[in-house]
Computed example of a mutant assay.
Amino acid sequence: MTHRLLLSIIFITSRLKNQQGKAVTAMPELPEVEAIRRVIEPQIRGLAIEQITVSRPEVVAHPTADEFCRCLTGQVFDSMTRRGKFLVIWLKSGDKIIIHLRMTGCLLVTPAAYPEEKHTHIIFRLNNGNEMRFSDTRRFGRFWLIRKGETDAYSGIKKLSKEPFAPGFTAEHLSVRLGKRKKAIKECLMEQSVIAGIGNIYSDEILFTARIYPARPANSLTGEEWKRLAEVIPERLSFFIQKNEITPEEYLETKGQDYRNTHFLQAYGHEGEPCPVCGKFLCRTVIGGRSSTFCPNCQK
Results as ranks from 00 to 15, higher is better:
11 F>M: 07
72 L>G: 06
262 T>L: 11
120 T>L: 08
36 I>S: 07
91 L>Y: 05
231 E>Q: 14
195 I>G: 05
210 A>H: 03
19 Q>T: 10
210 A>I: 08
186 K>V: 10
235 E>T: 14
100 H>M: 04
55 S>N: 11
239 F>A: 04
134 F>N: 02
256 G>S: 05
16 L>P: 00
142 R>Y: 07
199 G>H: 04
221 L>F: 03
249 E>S: 12
123 I>P: 02
213 Y>M: 06
238 S>K: 15
98 I>V: 15
77 F>K: 05
248 P>A: 09
199 G>C: 06
53 T>M: 05
23 A>Y: 08
199 G>Y: 02
19 Q>M: 09
86 F>D: 09
183 K>R: 12
38 R>E: 04
294 F>Y: 15
282 L>K: 08
240 F>T: 00
58 E>R: 15
220 S>N: 13
208 F>G: 06
58 E>S: 15
19 Q>H: 10
2 T>D: 14
242 Q>A: 12
180 K>W: 03
261 N>W: 04
158 K>P: 00
62 H>W: 14
281 F>R: 12
249 E>V: 01
53 T>H: 10
200 N>D: 08
120 T>G: 05
179 G>Y: 10
135 S>K: 00
286 V>F: 02
128 N>T: 14
68 F>R: 03
82 R>Q: 15
48 A>L: 00
290 R>M: 11
269 G>K: 11
229 L>H: 02
171 A>E: 13
53 T>L: 07
245 E>M: 12
150 E>M: 06
102 R>C: 09
93 S>K: 04
139 R>H: 11
30 L>I: 05
127 N>M: 03
292 S>C: 14
71 C>E: 05
71 C>M: 01
288 G>N: 04
40 I>A: 05
94 G>T: 07
196 A>E: 03
183 K>H: 01
7 L>I: 07
242 Q>N: 09
148 K>N: 13
88 V>I: 15
277 V>I: 14
